[in-house]
């Protein structure tokens, strides 16, 4: 019940009641988007937006930049580890002597 699933808004079905169709891995379902509509923005602007769906409600917009940032940080960590590993290996020039 508490596990949300990412999906993409593909169509606005009912502007008054804030209902939209969300595509979740090819499965389409009508969800309520009242919690992710931004003030002063036309509802149609929600089309294409990625959201986290919980029990029929879009509860958060997924922030692409934040997702990329998290993964980038992990990549940096991996690069640092590679570097440290390379540093701790014996120097081939010395080994040849």
């Amino acid at each position: 019940m508490c596990l949300g699933i990412p999906g993409q808004i593909v169509r606005i079905d009912d502007e008054e009641n804030l209902l939209a169709t969300v595509d979740v891995c090819g499965v389409r379902r009508k969800v309520n988007i009242a919690c992710i509509v931004e003030d002063g923005e036309p509802i149609a602007a929600c089309i294409g937006v990625w959201v986290l769906v919980h029990v029929g409600f879009a509860m958060a917009r997924i922030d692409e930049d934040e997702a990329i940032e998290t993964l980038r940080m992990l990549e940096e960590l991996a690069e640092m580890q590679d570097e440290l590993r390379a540093m701790s290996e014996p120097d081939p020039a010395q080994a040849a002597e």
Partner: peptide, 8 residues
């Protein structure tokens, strides 16, 4: 997490 969905 689910409280708002019931409220709405």
């Amino acid at each position: 997490t689910t409280m708002p969905s019931t409220a709405l």
